Amino acid sequence: MRATNWTYRLARAGAGVLVTLGVLGGCTAAPPPTNSAPVIVPGAPGEEASTIPPGEATVSEQPGPNDADKKFVKDMIVHHRQAVHMAGLAPERASSSDVKGLASRIHDVQGPEIDMMNRWLSQHAIPTVNPDAPHGHGGGAMPGMATDEQLAELEKARGDGFDTLFLQLMIAHHQGALTMADEVRKNGMDIRVQEIADDVTAEQSDEIRRMRKWLDG
Results as ranks from 00 to 15, higher is better:
122 S>C: 01
175 Q>A: 10
19 V>R: 06
82 Q>Y: 12
217 G>E: 13
5 N>K: 03
15 A>C: 13
152 A>R: 06
211 M>C: 08
168 Q>Y: 04
114 I>D: 06
72 F>L: 02
111 G>E: 15
10 L>K: 05
173 H>V: 09
56 E>H: 11
25 G>M: 05
63 P>L: 12
207 E>G: 06
31 P>F: 10
140 G>D: 08
33 P>T: 02
30 A>D: 02
163 D>I: 05
21 L>F: 12
216 D>K: 10
132 D>G: 13
9 R>A: 11
41 V>S: 01
60 S>W: 13
15 A>K: 04
134 P>Y: 07
81 R>K: 12
164 T>G: 15
75 D>K: 09
154 L>R: 05
123 Q>F: 11
166 F>H: 03
197 A>Y: 04
81 R>N: 14
43 G>S: 08
62 Q>S: 12
208 I>E: 04
6 W>C: 09
87 A>S: 06
149 E>R: 08
28 T>C: 00
180 M>P: 11
88 G>K: 11
90 A>H: 04
180 M>Y: 09
41 V>C: 01
2 R>M: 11
76 M>C: 03
170 M>I: 14
113 E>K: 12
4 T>E: 14
80 H>G: 04
103 A>K: 10
49 A>Q: 01
187 N>F: 10
97 S>N: 12
67 D>W: 10
156 K>A: 04
185 R>W: 04
40 I>C: 00
2 R>D: 09
6 W>A: 13
6 W>V: 13
11 A>N: 05
169 L>M: 14
50 S>I: 14
16 G>P: 06
3 A>K: 11
145 M>Y: 09
4 T>G: 02
142 M>H: 08
62 Q>D: 04
